[in-house]
Computed example of a mutant assay.
Amino acid sequence: MTWRMPAETEPHTCTWMAWPSSGYADGEDAHQAWAAVALAVAEFEPVRMVVDPAARKTARDRLGGAVEYFEAPLDDAWMRDIGPTFVVGPDGLGAVDWVFNGWGGQSWATWEHDAGIARQVAEWAGATVVSSAMVNEGGGIHVDGHGTVLVTETVQLDPGRNPGWSRERVEGELRRTLGVDEVVWLPRGLTRDYAEFGTRGHVDIVATMTAPGTVLLHVQTDPRHPDHELAPRLRKALPAGWKVVDLPAPEGLEDEHGPVDHSYVNHLVCNAGVVACTFDDPRDAAALDILAAAYPGRRVVGVDARAIFARGGGIHCITQQEPAIPGGEP
Rank of each mutant, 00 (worst) to 15 (best):
E229H: 13
V96A: 04
A237G: 11
Q156P: 03
E168K: 04
A33T: 06
A285F: 02
P84R: 05
W124M: 05
G241K: 09
N101A: 04
L230N: 10
V274F: 04
G258N: 01
P159F: 02
L230T: 10
W16S: 03
A35G: 15
Y69P: 05
P239D: 12
N101Y: 05
V50W: 07
F279K: 00
W185A: 11
A310I: 08
W242D: 05
F279Y: 14
P250K: 07
V274D: 01
Y295Q: 13
G314W: 07
N266C: 02
D52R: 03
Y295R: 13
L216S: 08
A115T: 10
V37L: 02
W16I: 04
E196H: 09
V170N: 02
R235E: 10
A55I: 08
P187E: 09
V244T: 03
T13R: 15
A293H: 10
E329S: 14
D29R: 14
P282N: 13
C277N: 13
R80S: 09
H257M: 11
G312V: 01
T15C: 12
R167P: 04
V51A: 08
D193P: 11
V184N: 08
K243E: 15
P11F: 09
V88H: 06
A292W: 06
D281Q: 02
Q321N: 06
V51T: 02
E254T: 05
G179N: 05
M79F: 07
V121P: 04
W98G: 03
Y295W: 14
P248R: 00
D181A: 15
G198K: 06
M17Y: 02
G104M: 10
D246F: 03
R80P: 03
H267K: 04
Y295L: 13
V180L: 09
L216A: 07
R311A: 04
G189F: 06
N162W: 04
G92L: 05
W185E: 03
S166E: 00
H267I: 15
A118K: 00
L247E: 01
T154Q: 11
N101F: 04
T13G: 11
V184W: 05
D26V: 05
P11R: 13
E182N: 14
R161T: 03
L190W: 05
D76C: 03
W98R: 01
T110P: 03
D304I: 15
L234F: 07
L157H: 01
P187Y: 12
P239Q: 10
